[in-house]
Design a protein around this nucleic acid. Structure first.
Lengths: 344, 344
DNA sequence: CTGTTAGCGCATTCAA
DNA sequence: TTGAATGCGCTAACAG
C-alpha cells in the first residue's frame, strides 16, 4: 500500500519531490535525490492509487471499448473472429500507449454516458453503433470518441469513424458475379437491427447492376434470422427449383461458411448448384470447402487505426480525415461458378 | 458533473442524506425526503465519481480479466473462438453483477500485481497462467483470484481454478482411436510455453495406451511451431510413406482444422490417408470437411463458472470445490478412419 | 531545487 | 431522521 507520502519519508524528501520524479519533471530535482527516490520507488513496488488520480485530475487513463450488440445475442455470434481480432489489436495498442481497457457490451446509450461520467474516461471506442445513438452520444459526451463501423444519420457533426468501403465492397463482388454470368442473386444481411454497413454493401450491389443496365430489386435484400435453424431452412430454400437464384451474396464469411456447410450436409454442391460469396476474408473463408470467394478487409488494422485516432484526439493533435474508410478488394477462390448461358 | 453535494443542495438536504438514499439505507431517511432525493438524482442523471469511491473505500468495482499469452503472439491466434466465447460470457456476467471489466493481456506477473494495486481491483480472473506465475500472484495479491485453465506447480495453496478434465479428454479420444484400430499416433500440443493442459491431455493419451498394454512414447508429443508455414510443412511430413503415423491427435480444433485444410490443398484425403482429431468442439470442427471428431468442452460455461466463483469469494461466501474440472466427452464425426488390419 | 497546502467527491463516524 | 466533519492519495499552485 505504499503511497507517495511513505516513499517520501523513506527517501527523506517531500511528497512533491517524489511526485516530480514520478512525473519526469527532472528539471526540478537534483540528480542525487532523483536516484535515491527512484530506488525507493522500485524497492517498495510503488503503484499509484488510480482512484486518487482520477479524483485529483477528474480524468482517468481508461479507454472505454464498447461493443454495441443486439440485446439477446447468441453466444455463437461472439465466436466471430472479427470481434476478437479487432479487440486484440486495440487492447495491445491501448496498453502500449499507457492506457487501460474497460470492456463493455451494451445496446443502451445511457449506459455509455453513465460509464463515461463515472469513470472519467479518457476516451471511447464504440463499435457497431446505430446512427441515432451516435448522435445522442456525440451531443452529450465531452471526451474524445472514435467509432468503428458505424453509420451516422446526420451530417451536423464531425464523427471520427473507422470503417470500410462497404459500398465499394458490395459493388466489387457483384461486378465479379456479373462477370461470371450471374444475374439472379440474393443479398444476405447479417442482422435486422443495425443495418448501416449492410445497407451500403447492398447499394454497391445495386450500382453494379445499374452499370450493366440491369436492376437488382430491393426485394433481393434479405436479413438473416437469429435462429440457426431458420437460417439453414432459408439457405436450402434458395436452391429450390422454383427459385431462380444462382448466387448468394453474404455480408459475412461467418454466415457464408455456415451456408456452405449446410449445403454440403444436404448434398448440394457449391458452386456447381449454387454460388456463394462471403465478406471479411477471415479464417472461415479459408477453412470451408470450396474456399470462399470473398471481400477482403483487415479487422486488426481497423482497431489499430481507431486507437491511433483516439490517441491523437486525446493529445489534441490534428486528425485527418475524420472518416477513414479502409480499402477492400475481392479475393477470388472457389465458391463461384462461371455460368455459360446467362440466367434470367 | 453532478455530485452528491449538488444533489443535496437541489433537494434541500444534506449530503449524508443523499448518500443514505443512494446506498439504500432507507431506515435513516423519511419516505418524503427519499422520494424527493430520488427524483433529483434521476433528473440530474447523477453518476458517482468512481475515483472518489475508490479513494474512500480503497476498493473498486473493477474485475481484472487477464489473458496470459506468449509475448509475440500472432494476431491470428486471437481469432481462436475460444477466447472470445469465454470473454463474452464473462463480460456479461460481470456486468450483471454490477462490476466492470478491465481487460489486459500480458505474460508478466508484475504487471498483474501493479494492476491490482493501482486499481484496487475487487477481483481477478486469470486465464492460461503458467504454474510458477500462479504461485507468485497468489503469495502477493490480497484480492480474490480465480484462475481459468491453469495448472499449478505447488500444492501449498488452495487455488481457485476452473479447468477441464484435460487428462480424461486425452484419454477418451485416444481410447476411441485405439478402438478404431490406430496404434501409431502423434499428439500435437498448442504451444511450447504454457503446457499445463497439453501435458495433462497427453498423459491421458498414454494412459489409454497402457490400458491396452501398449506404450505411447514421450517422443510422440510434438509442440506446434508458431509459424504457419512451419506447421504446414510438419503436417505434410506426417503423411510421408516413411512415417508410420496413422492419426494426428490435436490439442485444439483450430490447428486440427488448419491441418485438414492443408491436407486438402495437397490432395491428401482425410481420413482415408490420415486420421485427425481435434479438441474443443467449436465452430471450426463443424465447418471443415470432413467434420472433426473432437473432444467437447463448453468455453462459455467456463467463463460463467469462473465469474460466479469470483463473486462468491468477493462476497465471502463459501466456494466448493476450489478446483472445478468441467466434464468432457468425445464427439464422433468424420475425421477418423476405421483401420481394418491394425497398423504397427 | 525543495517543501507546504488546498481540494478533488465520496464514505463514514459522530453529533444533534 | 438529519447534518457536520474527517480522511482516503494524489495533483498542482504556491511559497521558500
Amino acid at each position: 500500500m505504499s503511497t507517495i507520502k511513505e516513499i517520501a519519508k523513506s527517501a527523506g524528501v517531500s511528497p512533491t519531490t517524489v511526485a516530480n520524479v514520478i512525473h519526469g519533471n527532472f528539471g526540478r530535482v537534483s540528480q542525487a535525490t532523483r536516484e535515491r527516490v527512484e530506488r525507493v520507488i522500485a524497492e517498495e513496488k510503488y503503484a499509484p492509487n488510480m482512484g486518487a488520480k482520477i479524483l485529483a485530475q477528474s480524468s482517468s487513463r481508461i479507454i472505454g471499448v464498447i461493443m454495441f450488440m443486439e440485446p439477446r445475442w447468441e453466444e455463437s455470434v461472439l465466436e466471430d473472429p472479427f470481434s476478437s481480432a479487432i479487440l486484440g489489436a486495440m487492447e495491445r495498442d491501448i496498453r502500449d500507449n499507457g492506457y487501460f481497457v474497460m470492456l463493455h457490451t451494451t445496446s443502451d446509450e445511457d449506459e455509455v454516458l453513465r460509464l463515461s461520467k463515472a469513470w472519467k474516461l479518457a476516451g471511447l471506442i464504440l463499435v457497431w453503433v446505430p446512427g441515432d445513438v451516435c448522435r445522442v452520444i456525440y451531443d452529450t459526451i465531452e471526451t474524445p470518441v472514435v467509432f468503428i463501423d458505424s453509420y451516422f444519420s446526420d451530417r451536423d457533426h464531425v464523427y471520427y469513424n473507422v470503417g470500410l468501403q462497404d459500398e465499394r465492397g458490395g459493388y466489387l463482388i457483384t461486378r465479379y458475379l456479373l462477370s461470371m454470368g450471374h444475374r439472379n442473386m440474393l443479398f444476405l444481411a447479417n442482422t435486422s437491427l443495425f443495418t448501416g454497413g449492410d445497407d451500403a454493401r447492398f447499394k454497391g450491389c445495386q450500382r453494379a447492376f445499374l452499370e450493366n443496365n440491369l436492376v437488382l430489386s430491393d426485394a433481393c435484400y434479405h436479413a438473416l434470422d437469429r435462429e440457426k435453424k431458420v437460417r439453414e431452412k432459408f439457405y436450402l430454400s434458395c436452391t429450390d427449383s422454383s427459385n431462380p437464384c444462382t448466387a448468394l451474396v453474404f455480408s459475412s464469411d461467418y454466415y457464408a461458411a455456415e451456408a456452405v456447410s449446410t449445403f454440403q450436409d444436404h448434398g448440394i454442391d457449391v458452386p456447381s448448384q449454387i454460388s456463394v460469396t462471403g465478406f471479411d476474408d477471415n479464417l472461415f473463408s479459408r477453412l470451408v470447402r470450396p474456399r470462399l470467394t470473398t471481400v477482403h478487409q483487415n479487422a486488426s488494422e481497423k482497431g489499430r487505426i481507431a486507437v491511433s485516432m483516439l490517441m491523437r484526439l486525446i493529445n489534441k493533435k490534428s486528425v485527418s480525415p475524420p472518416d477513414v474508410r479502409l480499402d477492400v478488394h475481392v479475393v477470388v477462390r472457389d465458391s463461384v461458378k462461371k455460368l455459360e448461358h446467362n440466367g434470367s
